[in-house]
């Protein structure tokens, strides 16, 4: 018996709807931290990243696994539960890994002027995720929000590409936050 077959949603329609609502909330209110539950993915995948994959990925969303996340247990779990094709960096619609393994970011799709949506969404696994650190301003933020981003320069460079650029989810355990390409980031 292979553990890859376990740990998916039990009630996919309801659970994925809740997760999608949470994903939309954190993406539209950068800095907001929510919790995602309902998946039991294999290590080293966090619960939040697992739920995001189950919710956002299917056979039509090529996924790149970076670094330690490109291992047999994760690949098999994704193959059964999402069916997402596992691809190299350039073809990725989603990419999953820790911040270091996802570098260099320049290799990811940032969309086309006619289709800015054809850009990668990064799922960045974090050692910690807290509402402090870098200052976030822009759409969805009343005044300023704070998030423990892995760095600042990369997100400033990404903002400069707007309306092109990548979008990010950050996951740690069950916690999820997000940073869309529209957010201005400053160091504290």
């Amino acid at each position: 018996m292979n553990d890859a077959l376990l740990g998916g949603f039990v009630d996919a329609a309801v659970q994925s709807s809740h997760a999608f609502r949470a994903a939309l909330t954190v993406l539209s209110q950068p800095g907001e931290i929510r919790e995602l539950h309902g998946a039991v993915p294999p290590a080293p995948l966090s619960v939040a990243a697992g739920v995001l994959l189950l919710t956002l990925c299917d056979g039509t969303t090529p996924l790149h696994l970076a670094g330690a996340y490109d291992c047999a247990s994760v690949r098999d779990w994704i193959t059964f539960h999402c069916g997402a094709p596992l691809v190299s960096v350039e073809a990725a619609v989603f990419a999953l890994g820790d911040w270091v393994a996802l570098q260099p970011l320049g290799q990811f799709a940032i969309g086309l002027p006619d289709y800015p949506d054809r850009a990668v969404t990064l799922i960045v696994e974090m050692p910690a995720l807290e509402a402090k650190g870098a200052v976030l301003r822009g759409p969805g933020i009343a005044d300023a929000a704070y998030l423990s981003l892995p760095e600042v320069a990369a997100f400033q460079a990404n903002r400069a590409l707007f309306p092109l650029g990548f979008d990010c989810f950050f996951t740690c355990g069950a916690k999820v936050a997000a940073l869309p390409r529209s957010t201005h980031v400053e160091a504290v």
Partner: peptide, 8 residues
Amino acid sequence: MMQTPLEA
């Protein structure tokens, strides 16, 4: 990247 079948 090849996807490996889950079952042997």
